[in-house]
Amino acid sequence: MLPDELREALEKQIAHVDHPRELVVDAMLALQDHYGYLSDEAVEQTAAMLGMSALEVEELSTFYTFIYREPVGKYVIHVCDSLICWMDGFESIKNYLCQKLDIEVGGTSADGLFTLLPVCCIGYCDRAPAMLINRKVYGPLTPGKIDQILEKLRSEA
């Protein structure tokens, strides 16, 4: 069930636009924030609120990089594997993250805190190698910096 507050906020937003479905990404992101990922229930709720079919929402949810249709950790790490980050050490950064979190790419750490996913160029080529955690950028990365970032996030969790 969606909390009334969230539902009302979304409904207010929807009432304000000419075409409800133009808000589909906003709605998916909001429900994802609430549930932790875009669950089946969230897909149906998004569809119902926007007058779309669940299938239409599903088509979009699986299309976009930042919509997660499977459970993810509290912190989603998107590590950039495009050209400049790749030249500047993506492989070793990725391997270090895998080792530190004891997961493979695509996996979630045992404590449920971190999910590691690759992502295409995030537009921080002047700070390569870089990554995003919950859409906040970090870079240029070194193993030492990664230790600090992960520790800080663990302590805040």
């Binding site: 479905r21 589909v24 926007l50 779309m52 979009l60 976009y64 990089t65 930042f66």
Partner: peptide, 20 residues
Amino acid sequence: RSGGRYICGEVTAQLNALMG
């Protein structure tokens, strides 16, 4: 806000994205 995909930078794809 986009949900994130390279093709959305293309004009006509972006129009579709904006229309949900």
